[in-house]
Design a protein around this nucleic acid. Sequence first.
DNA 1: TTCGTCATGTAATGGGTTACATGATTAC
DNA 2: GTAATCATGTAACCCATTACATGACGAA
Lengths: 195, 195
Amino acid sequence: MLELAVLGLLHESPLHGYELRQRLKATLGTFRAFSYGSLYPTLRRMRDAGWIAEDEGDAEVVAGAPALTGRRGKVVYKLTAEGKEHLAELLTDAGPSAWEDETFGVHFALFSQTDPEVRVRILEGRRSRLEERREGVRATLARTRARLDSYTLQLQEHGLESVEREVRWLTELIETERLKTTTTPRKAVPHSVRP
Amino acid sequence: MLELAVLGLLHESPLHGYELRQRLKATLGTFRAFSYGSLYPTLRRMRDAGWIAEDEGDAEVVAGAPALTGRRGKVVYKLTAEGKEHLAELLTDAGPSAWEDETFGVHFALFSQTDPEVRVRILEGRRSRLEERREGVRATLARTRARLDSYTLQLQEHGLESVEREVRWLTELIETERLKTTTTPRKAVPHSVRP
DNA sequence: TTCGTCATGTAATGGGTTACATGATTAC
DNA sequence: GTAATCATGTAACCCATTACATGACGAA
């Protein structure tokens, strides 16, 4: 989860931990937050796994004294070749792990790096997940409405409306994606090889 | 969390684990779900703590053979006196632990058992929590809007609208609570002791 | 008799959080 | 020189989840 988010952000540009967390907040907004207590250990694991590496091409290392102390302030990370490969793999996964509550936000935030077909499948998966949930709530609500106190009832109805709202949002997004795919041909034949 | 939910439900009527989970789903709806893997250990801990006890007054124990095997199918739990006390304490807590994302739903679902003043304080706490978040998102959005790709932007805006919607909902609820408190006197003096 | 669902439970694991500790850099 | 914020990291813990194991009971 955090791993995917980190890979996605580092694919755009090298960053150090602190900055990564700001970007995480800016990218995921209300959908998810991560603390440093999970970020730094994750960064370490990822470095050990070979997906990211310290970026030396930063040139921000002040010449002279600080270089000798061996311990600089910032540790800027960038994706390695293996990291890029791993990211590409994770981005093709359009399974349940991409549309569950905790994960969907991250996958969606990385949609600009995701294959259009995978995008649609994730959106549809997310939508049917929510439709299931909606039907579940409706069913139990129909069964138990009379027995519920007014607060529980209001909670149920607010929850139901939230789900309905997100379903509508997803439906619009799917529409838009479909239009894009049918308008823009999947693989344009380059001019140079046209008959 | 689960503990509070269990205490709240058992305060209404004795239940066994399986039924408890159904009720949990029906009561919390989209806001939270618990698995048996956390429910049963919790029930055990609560029994060991003396807050709940097996309910023998159930009379559903079939007379005869099964009683001798010592192991019946259902284990019905009810609140003990200590459990009721503990629940009452938890329900007076109108601190941050009552209005965070993971906890608010449970506290709200138990509002009919909660003191009106505590209700308002929790609703207000929840609302300012969300207003903070809303301002945070708005600020970073204003700063970074231009640099965000269209998907990230849509995610941000959808998130922002969700928060705004919940703030409006809370505001309505607070209004209603206030009207109730001013209309219905806090403690009505019983007829018998009126001058 | 076998399938679904009711019913209870455990073990291993997971993916984080909070709180703490430390120090560099910047702005006033 | 001192406060804020930038920056990195660790240790202890928490609250759950998944997967598994077991078995009763009613309906087809």
